[in-house]
Amino acid sequence: FSLAASVRVGHARGRHDEPGLRHAVQVALCITTVVGVTAAAALVLARGWIPHIYTNNRDVIELATYLLLFAALYQVSDALQVCANGCLRGFEDTAWPMIMTLFAYWGVGLPLGYGLGLTRWFGEPMGPAGFWIGLVAGLTMAAILLGWRLRWRMQQSLSPTH
């Protein structure tokens, strides 16, 4: 879907079609949000039986059922950051998004996950849940930064001086 957003944004830019550009970005973000929320809801609803597909071990099932809540949480942030990145590719904007995602994943997500999961930096180590929280935080940071960048690119593209 991100690739489709890249193409639609790029074509609208190439035509100098400001309404089409705005429409392409809005539709991409709306559909992405619906898909992310739907995926999150499906994981929450199915988290009790998904682990049973893979194991009969009660401890593993209990842990997986808990961790699937985190997997549900990251669905929306992940979908939005991938979509925003795709739209930015349609603007031929790749360098800053790469730096932003690098920071979000390696500067926020990984250190936070490590700190929460394995160290006493934030209290008792949380184990796998700490890593999942770091993952959610990193993806959310990427979604925020890329959303900010996309908004800025839209304003630049749609301003009267361009």
Rank of each mutant, 00 (worst) to 15 (best):
F1K: 15
L3D: 15
A4S: 14
A4M: 11
S6P: 08
V7C: 12
G10A: 00
G10R: 01
G10W: 05
H11N: 14
A12F: 07
G14Q: 08
R15N: 10
E18K: 15
L21Y: 13
R22L: 10
A24T: 03
A24Y: 03
A28Y: 08
A28R: 04
L29V: 07
C30K: 13
I31A: 13
T32K: 00
V35P: 05
G36I: 00
T38D: 11
T38M: 11
A41L: 15
L43C: 02
V44E: 12
A46Q: 09
R47T: 06
R47D: 04
G48V: 10
W49H: 07
W49G: 03
W49K: 02
W49D: 00
W49Q: 06
W49Y: 04
I50S: 04
P51C: 04
Y54K: 09
N56S: 14
D59L: 11
D59P: 02
D59T: 10
I61W: 01
I61N: 07
E62L: 15
L63Q: 15
Y66K: 02
L68I: 09
L69E: 12
L69K: 09
F70D: 00
A71C: 12
A71G: 11
A72I: 06
Y74Q: 05
Y74T: 06
V76P: 01
D78M: 08
A79F: 08
V82A: 13
C87Q: 06
R89W: 08
R89Q: 02
F91S: 02
F91A: 07
P97Q: 04
P97G: 11
L102H: 12
G107R: 02
V108K: 03
P111M: 07
P111E: 05
G113N: 05
G115I: 01
L116H: 05
T119I: 05
F122V: 12
G123Q: 01
E124Q: 09
M126A: 10
M126K: 09
G127C: 06
G127F: 03
A129M: 03
F131T: 13
I133E: 01
L135W: 07
L139Q: 04
M141W: 00
M141K: 11
I144D: 03
L145D: 00
L146P: 07
G147Q: 08
G147L: 03
R149E: 14
R153S: 11
M154S: 07
M154I: 11
Q155E: 12
Q156E: 13
Q156S: 14
S157W: 13
S157N: 12
S159M: 10
S159P: 07
P160I: 09
P160E: 15
